[in-house]
Nucleic acid binder design. Structure first.
Lengths: 98, 98
DNA sequence: ACTGATTTGACTATTTTTGTCAAATCAATT
DNA sequence: AATTGATTTGACAAAAATAGTCAAATCAGT
């Protein structure tokens, strides 16, 4: 189970690309990409999809990774994180119906 | 399973308080409290704890309700919400260790 | 030490969130 | 249907969080 940043870093290296090059492809400053790879900043949904495109990754899988990271970081300092997630699951189902 | 806003609204009514009065106790505009009760705005952690105090609710339980709401609202429009939550659970455990 | 890649941090711009306020709406009562 | 009091709404401003730009610093290999 890898974090989003780890995935896009590994994939970039697999493809043998430099930040500079990805930067050009994404039209995004390389400093930011560096930060995304080290989980220092959160990507936007559009950026995630762009990464999926560039690196030939399944967009849904990448979105799941990105999103779950976000939730996990939000809750990592929370006392009852696990319980919160359980309750959230019920609530999501409930809210989706509405 | 009630949403945070529903809980604080019900409790207020149980105690027979008007928004105006809660507003005074919380030192917070009644318009905002109205919005919190209808889930139109998100409370801050301090506000949640203040509510727990005023309404004699278990702070941890209220935090869980508030936090899980937040997560659920974030994910309610997400295709793979359930999977995201599952992965997030693993990641939380992993991040907590670090 | 030199080169090229990555990381860092200061800065600005943009977006999002928060609270204030007054007016509008709603519900009950007369 | 007019009055009263409670709640809701929406426009606005202040404050906080987030996003991107840039240049300099660091790092790794030769």
């Amino acid at each position: 189970m890898k974090l989003f940043g780890e995935i896009i870093k590994e994939k970039r290296e697999e493809k043998g690309l430099f930040l500079r090059q990805v930067s050009a492809l994404m039209e995004l400053d390389q400093a930011i990409i560096s930060k995304l790879e080290r989980q220092e900043r959160k990507a936007s949904r559009e950026q995630v999809l762009k990464f999926a495109e560039i690196y030939d990754l399944n967009p849904d899988d990448l979105i799941i990774s990105w999103r779950s990271d976000k939730v996990a970081y939000e809750l990592m300092n929370e006392e009852n994180a696990e319980q919160i997630l359980k309750v959230a699951e019920t609530k999501v189902k409930y809210l989706k119906k509405k």
